[in-house]
């Protein structure tokens, strides 16, 4: 997406919120916080509630429906929120507020809060891929070399084999990370099948290279590993089949 003018800055209330329509796209929420402007997807990542109906104190945005909260500077979740806001890059041009889509890496919660320099290095090895509906990204037993970050579309997972296959869930949110095996030790093979259920855009990252980059910046590496283990725990708890 190229840069788009979406509203005049004087139309955004001071320390307030304004929902803007965007041609051929989901509505965007523009946020004023003191001297700064931010913009994010106007719909709550939880349950399709308009965020302009939420509460905003100048720094923290709260969805009124289930009280998910975010830091509007970064989109990072606070408290009960389980997903970040999808933030846009913002600039002001001649009194117009302009937005540009962030790349999925910048909204991926796995990498949220790591050093900018490290994020740039990871960004430099990211390759964008367009996949068509029905394409199998990997299947059980395939070598696990890349991890993926979803940009758009829907990916579904199957676990098990030999006639005993069950659903391993699905991913639909920009910035969700999957195929994380190459970030771990001795996980050389895929243990699930990942299939694109619609046209999918994703970023693919070479796992070994990501590990190398993170080893050079252990503080960021630690953050990523903590997030990864929390993510795995969440999936392990949820996957107890009944």
């Amino acid at each position: 997406m190229t840069e788009k003018r979406i509203c005049r800055i004087e139309d955004v209330p001071s320390n307030g919120l304004k929902e803007c329509e965007v041609d051929n796209g989901a509505p965007v929420l523009v946020i004023n916080s003191g001297e700064e402007y931010f913009a994010c997807n106007a719909i709550c990542p939880h349950q399709e509630v308009p965020l302009c109906e939420g509460m905003f104190d100048g720094k923290v945005l709260t969805c009124h429906m289930h009280l998910w909260q975010w830091d509007v500077r970064t989109g990072a979740p606070i408290g009960l929120a389980e997903a970040p806001l999808e933030m846009f890059e913002v600039s002001v041009d001649d009194g117009w507020l302009c937005i540009r889509a962030s790349n999925a890496l910048r909204v991926a919660s796995l990498f949220e809060g790591i050093a900018q320099e490290t994020l740039e290095k990871i960004n430099a090895i990211a390759e964008e891929r367009q996949c068509s509906e029905g394409e199998v990204l990997y299947t059980v037993g395939d070598p696990a070399e890349e991890l993926f970050i979803l940009e758009s579309g829907r990916v579904e997972f199957l676990v098990g084999r030999d006639g005993k296959v069950t659903s391993g869930g699905f991913m639909v949110r920009k910035g969700e990370v999957f195929g994380w095996a190459p970030l771990m030790e001795n996980q050389k093979q895929r243990v699930a099948q990942a299939t694109c259920k619609e046209a999918v855009t994703l970023l693919s990252l070479n796992g070994a290279k990501v590990r190398e980059i993170l080893e050079e910046d252990p503080r960021s590496g630690m953050k990523v590993m903590m997030r990864l283990s929390s993510l795995l725990t969440k999936y392990m708890i949820a996957a107890g089949t009944s």
């Binding site: 869930g169 699905f170 999936y235 089949t241 009944s242």
Partner: peptide, 11 residues
């Protein structure tokens, strides 16, 4: 029920 992280069955 298929959920974000897998499926569950009940009667």
């Amino acid at each position: 029920i298929t959920s974000r992280a897998g499926e569950h069955q009940f009667d």
